[in-house]
Design a protein around this nucleic acid. Sequence first.
DNA 1: TCTCAAACTTAGCAGTTTGAGT
DNA 2: ACTCAAACTGCTAAGTTTGAGA
Length: 567
Amino acid sequence: EDEFYQSPRHDKSLKRERDDDNEWEEERYTDGVKWKFLEHKGPVFAPPYDPLPSNVKFYYDGKPMKLSPEAEEVATFFAKMLDHEYTTKDIFRKNFFKDWRKEMTSEEKAIITDLKKCNFSDMSEYFKAQSEARKKIKEENERILQEYGFCIMDNHRERIANFRIEPPGLFRGRGDHPKMGMLKRRIRPQDIIINCSKDSKHPEPPPGTKWKEVRHDNKVTWLVSWTENIQGSIKYIMLNPSSRIKGEKDWQKYETARRLKKCVDRIRNQYREDWKSKEMRIRQRAVALYFIDKLALRAGNEKEEGETADTVGCCSVRVEHIKLYPESDGQEYVVEFDFLGKDSIRYYNKVPVEKRVFKNLQLFMENKEPDDDLFDRLNTSILNKHLQELMDGLTAKVFRTYNASITLQQQLKQLTNSEDNVPAKILSYNRANRAVAILCNHQRAPPKTFEKSMQNLQTKIDAKRDQLSDAKRELKISIYLGQINNISKKKAVQRIEEQLMKLEVQATDREENKQIALGTSKLNYLDPRISVAWCKKFGIPIEKIYNKTQREKFAWAIDMADEDFEF
DNA sequence: TCTCAAACTTAGCAGTTTGAGT
DNA sequence: ACTCAAACTGCTAAGTTTGAGA
C-alpha cells in the first residue's frame, strides 16, 4: 500500500526527471485527465507450451492416444493437480472436462467423451518425476558427499575440501592472461596419483582403468594429485579447513606472527640502519622490507614471461610502477605506486615515505629503463633467507599476517564503544575489518546491482524519515490534547527511530564496502582469537561475526581464546 | 647459486541459498 | 507469500615457500 501510494516526492528518479524537464512544471491535469502521453512495451507472456516427450502417454479407455498440442497442454494442467483432493470433486471435474473439450480437435472430441475413461497417471508420474529429479540431484550430491567427501585420518573422520576432479573446459585465467581460451583437458584415472596409508583400503579406479600411481607418503597432506595441462602445475585434493591438519597449521601461522610482534621493533630498527648500508643489495633489501612491512605488499616472485598475466609484487616491482614526488599535496617525499598485483588486482597508493627511503629509490632508479626491476639485486629467496636469520620461521608473508592482525586488534580497541547496541558494535567490527582489507588491498568488483540496491535503501530511509515525523507529529498532537494514554505513541516514535538508525547504519556500511572484500582477510589474515575475545568481551554472539563454515574453520580459536586474549 | 617441482596458502567470482522486510 | 539483497558455497587460479638437484 505504502509503495503504491507513495507521493512523487519519495520517488527520487521521478523528482529528478521533473527537475530536468521544465515542461513538466507547465503541465496541468484537469477534468479527470490522467495523462497525455503513454508509451510502453507491453507485458511478457508465459512461455509457449513445450510438448511432452513422446514416451509420456495419455490413455483413453486403456489405449494410448496422441493428443494435439492444445489438448495436451490442458491435460497436463490436470495431470499436475492429480494428487489434490479437489480433482475428485464433481464441479471441478465437470468444469475442467467442459473447457478441455473446447481445446480439442473434432477428432479428439469425438473420441474423448468420458473423463472417467481418461488416464493421466503416466503424465502425472512424469511431472512428479521431474520435481523429484531436482530433489534427487540434491540427494545424490549429498550421497556423493557422504561417500567421497570424507576421509579417515588418525582415527578422525575429516571433511575433504575439493574431492571433485576439475572438469574440462576452456581456461580463462585472471586479467590479461596469455593462455586464455586454451583447452583444459579432461582428467582420467591414469592421470591420478593416490596418496593414502599402506594399510588402508585403497580407493578403486573406475572399472577397466588404472591409477597413475598409488603412493604412501605421510610427509604430505594431500590425498590425490594430478598434473594440469595449462601451466603444467600439480593440483591436489586436500582436507577442509575444519580439519585438524589445517587448523593446526593455521594456528602455527598466527603464532609465528605473534613471535614477530615481539621482535618487530628490532627488525624495523635493523632495516632502517640498512638504508644507509654501503652495499646496494642490502639497501635494496631494506627498502623492499620497509614496503612489505609498511604497505603489506606481497613478496613478489619472478614469473615466467608469457606463461601468466603480467603482475608483480614487492621484489618484482619495476621502475615503471612507481613515481617519485619530492613534494605532493603538501607532503614531502611521496611515492606513487601503480601496478597489477595478484589476480591482476590494481594496487594504487600514494604515500609519503622517509627521506632515506626516497633518496634510495632515486638511486635505485638511476640509469634504468621503465621495464627494469626496481630491486635488481633482490629476489624473494634472498629476502626470505635474510628474514630467516632475523627470526626463526620469518618470511615475507608473515608481515602481512602480523600487520593485518595487529591492525584489527588496535582498530577494535579504538572503534568499539561499550555503550553501543549490538548492530553498532558490529558496524565497528566491520570497520576494523575494513581497515585491514584496505591495508591488504582486498578488492572486489562493485556488485552488479549495487547502484540499484543503494537507491532502494535510500527510498526506504526516506520513507522511514517521513514515518518518523508523522509519528512525532501525532505524539505532539496527543500531548497538546492532553491525552494521558500517549505511551503507545511514544513507543512508536522510539521504535521508528531505532529502525531508522538501523537503516542508516546499513547504508553507511554498504557504501563503505562497495569495492572492498572483507572475506579474504577474515579468512586468511586475522587471528580468529582476536575476534573471539572481542565477542566475549562485548557480549556479541560469535554467530554475528562468523558463519557456520567459519566457526568450523576457527573451532580451535573459539575453544582457545578467552576475553583477554592479546595478539 | 640457480632452477624447478612440489606443497601449501591466498584470492576473487559466479551461482545458489537464505533470510529480512514488507 | 513474495521480493530483493545479503550471505554463503564451490570453484579453481594465482600466489608464497621450501627444498632437491644440477
